[in-house]
Design a protein around this nucleic acid. Structure first.
Lengths: 354, 354
DNA sequence: TTGAAAGCGCTAACAA
DNA sequence: TTGTTAGCGCTTTCAA
C-alpha cells in the first residue's frame, strides 16, 4: 500500500488549473516561452501553479518527443581505481555544468559487454558518449556510428573516432629516466635490473614499453631482452608475475616500472607475502597516480595523467560535431615519491568541522 | 553531415515488413509473446527481421508507456574514493544481474544537490534508488516519498527510510583495541596518546567516536577530553588538523584513529611535509579500507566495510516494497597492516597476459 | 492466435 | 499572444 504515491502533475493538470492550453504550459515550463512570446503574466501564473503542485517534467516523455534525452554517457573499464574514479568525478562535474545528466557505466574490459552496454545507452537516447579505456574502441565505434551517436575515445585510442589520450611514450620515458636517476644515486644500475611489469597488448602499453626501452637505451646504453613482463590488468596475475620473477632471481629487480595502478596492486599483494626487507633498495615507477601509492615504504615515482584536461578536450571534440579520427595527446605529469596531489574532490568546498 | 545516422527501425517498420500488426511485433520483441500465445513461427519471423534490421527498442518510449524506465540509481557523496568506487562497482554488477541499467551519480555531500539530483533521476522515472552516505537522507526521503519512489539508505542512516549501515560502534571498538594492542607491544600507551581525527556530526562519526571512547575507557582505563578532532570529510582540513596537533605537541600521538580514508588522505598530505622519522612509533587505525593505505611505512590497521553485503541487503529491502524505517547493521572486518584484500575487480575474469 | 485503437506526457508546426 | 493538433515509439486492453 503505497499511500503517498500520488500521481505526478502533468502539463494537462496545469493547463486546466491555469486555463491555458497545454502547449502554453509546456512552453513556459521548458523555458522556451520568451521566444514563443508568451505574456510575462501568464508565465508567472503557470510557474506559480507548477511550484505549488510540485510539477516536474517527465523527462522520458520530453526525450521521446525531442528524440534526445539530456543524458551523456561515460563508459569506463572499471570504477574501482583512483584513476577511473577521478575520471568519473571530473566527467560528472563537466556534464552537470552543461545542464545535462551524467551516466557512468563500466564494462569490465569485455569487448562484448562494451558494445552491449553502449547499445543500451543508445536505446535511452543518450546524446553523447565518452569511451574510456575500451578494449575494443572500434567495435564500440561501429555501434555508435550506426546510431549516429557522437562519441570520442579517451585513455585508449581507436582508429575510427577522435581520441584523447595521454602521451604515454613521453610519460614512460620520463618515468624510466626518473627511476634510473633515483637508483643511480647509490650505485649504477645494470640494464637487466630495470624491469617493466604489467599492461597487455593495447596502445597504451605498447607506447609505454616503447618509451621504456628507448629511455633505457639512451640512459643505460642497453636494453636487453626479457625485461618486460605483460600481465594484463589484474592484481592477481600481476602478483603472480612478481612472485615468479622473485623465485627465479631470488630478489626483485632494483628498478621496477609498473604499467598501471592496478598492476601496482599486484605488487602490494606480493608485498603481503614478503617481509619488508625484500623491498629495501627497490625503486618503483608507476604509470598512474594513487595518493596512497605515493607513500609506500620505498620510493614510488608516479605519472599522473591529466584527467581534467583529457575530459575537457573530449568535450571540446564532442562539441565539434564530427571531429577527425585523430589522436590528441595530453601531457602527463611526473610525481616524485611522497607527494600528495590535490584531486577533483578538492574542488568541492570544505565542510565546517562539525 | 552525419551520413550514416539512418533512422532506427521501429516496430512499425517491422510490422510492415512482417505483415503482422504492431502489437504483435511489440509482444514478440519485448518477450511477452509466449504468454500472449503468439505462434512460434511468427515470433521467429519477426525476430529474424529484427536482427536483420538491427532493431533495438526505444527505451524512452517503452519507459513512457510503462511509466518506468529500467533505471536504478545510486547516489554517492563522491566517486573518487576506494570505498565509494567499490560500492559503485558492486552496485553496477547487482543491477545488471537484474537486467536493469545502473545510474551512479554523486552529490558532493551538498544537501541541496542531493535533493535536486534525485529529483532529476525521478524525472527519468528511475525505479529504485540507493542513497549512500547522504548528508541529508531525510531530505532525500521526502523527495522520493512524494514521488512514490522505493529507496533505502546505505552507509549513513536516515530516520524515515530503511537504512543499511555498518556497525560503526563495534568496528570502532575493534579498531581502537587493535591500535592499543599494537602500540602496547613496545611500551604502554598513555590515554592522551590515542587520538581520533576526522569525521563530523553524522551518525557514522558519532558511533565511531562512541566506540573509540568506550574502548579507550575499557582498555586504557581512561578517556580524557580533547582527544577527538573532527575535521569534516576533506583532505585539506584533515591535514590542517594534523599540522595543528603537531605544532602544539611537537609530535603526533602514538596512536591515531582516523575516521575515514578521506581523512587518511589528510594524513599523507601531512606526511608530504614531514620527514619519515616523524612517523616512527606511529600506529594508525583507519576506518575504511584502501589497499595502498594498508602498506604505508608505519602500521595501518584498517576497517573494511562489507560493501557486498550492504548492497545485497539494500536490494533485499528494496524488493520488500515498503520496508520499515529501521537500521540494519552489517559487521565490518578488521584488516591487519600490510594486507591486500580481494575486491570487486577480482570477480572479473583475469585477462590473458597478451 | 492476432489486430485495432487508445494513450503515456510532452513538443512543435501551424492556425487563429 | 495563444490554442489545436498530430505525433515521438511503445504497451495494453479489448475485440475478433
Amino acid at each position: 500500500m503505497d499511500r503517498t504515491a500520488k500521481k505526478k502533475a502533468t502539463i494537462y493538470d496545469l493547463s486546466v488549473l491555469s486555463g491555458c492550453s497545454p502547449s502554453t504550459v509546456s512552453a513556459v515550463l521548458n523555458g522556451s516561452w520568451r521566444q514563443r512570446r508568451i505574456k510575462e503574466s501568464t508565465a508567472e501564473l503557470i510557474q506559480g501553479l507548477a511550484a505549488k503542485h510540485q510539477y516536474t517534467a517527465n523527462l522520458q516523455a520530453r526525450g521521446l518527443r525531442r528524440s534526445r534525452s539530456g543524458l551523456v554517457g561515460l563508459l569506463l573499464p572499471v570504477h574501482d581505481t583512483r584513476y577511473f574514479s577521478s575520471m568519473a568525478q571530473t566527467f560528472e562535474a563537466c556534464v552537470r555544468s552543461r545542464g545535462q545528466c551524467p551516466v557512468v557505466v563500466s564494462a569490465c574490459r569485455d569487448p562484448q559487454e562494451e558494445r552491449q552496454i553502449v547499445e543500451t545507452l543508445i536505446s535511452y537516447s543518450i546524446e553523447a558518449l565518452i569511451v574510456a579505456g575500451a578494449t575494443d574502441p572500434d567495435g564500440v565505434h561501429a555501434v555508435c556510428e550506426a546510431a549516429g551517436l557522437r562519441h570520442v575515445n579517451i585513455d585508449l585510442p581507436g582508429t575510427k573516432a577522435a581520441s584523447v589520450i595521454s602521451d604515454n611514450y613521453a610519460g614512460a620515458r620520463l618515468l624510466t629516466e626518473a627511476i634510473v636517476r633515483r637508483c643511480g644515486a647509490d650505485r649504477p644500475l645494470d640494464a637487466t635490473d630495470l624491469h617493466l611489469f604489467g599492461g597487455r597488448d593495447d596502445h597504451a602499453s605498447r607506447e609505454r614499453i616503447r618509451g621504456f626501452r628507448d629511455a633505457k637505451r639512451d640512459v643505460l646504453g642497453a636494453d636487453p631482452d626479457g625485461c618486460i613482463t605483460p600481465t594484463g590488468y589484474s592484481p592477481t596475475t600481476s602478483r603472480l608475475a612478481f612472485e615468479d620473477y622473485f623465485e627465479r632471481n631470488g630478489r626483485l629487480p632494483r628498478g621496477l616500472f609498473v604499467n598501471s595502478s592496478i598492476n601496482l596492486e599486484g605488487l602490494i599483494r606480493f608485498m603481503a607475502h614478503h617481509p619488508n626487507d625484500t623491498f629495501t633498495d627497490l625503486v618503483v615507477g608507476c604509470y598512474d597516480y594513487d595518493p596512497f601509492g605515493s607513500f609506500l615504504p620505498f620510493p614510488v615515482i608516479m605519472i599522473r595523467q591529466d584527467v581534467e584536461t583529457m575530459i575537457a578536450r573530449a568535450f571540446a571534440l564532442l562539441d565539434e560535431g564530427r571531429p577527425a579520427a585523430r589522436i590528441h595527446l595530453v601531457t602527463p605529469e611526473l610525481v616524485p615519491p611522497r607527494t600528495a596531489l590535490r584531486g577533483p574532490l578538492d574542488a568541492l568546498k570544505d565542510e565546517a568541522p562539525a
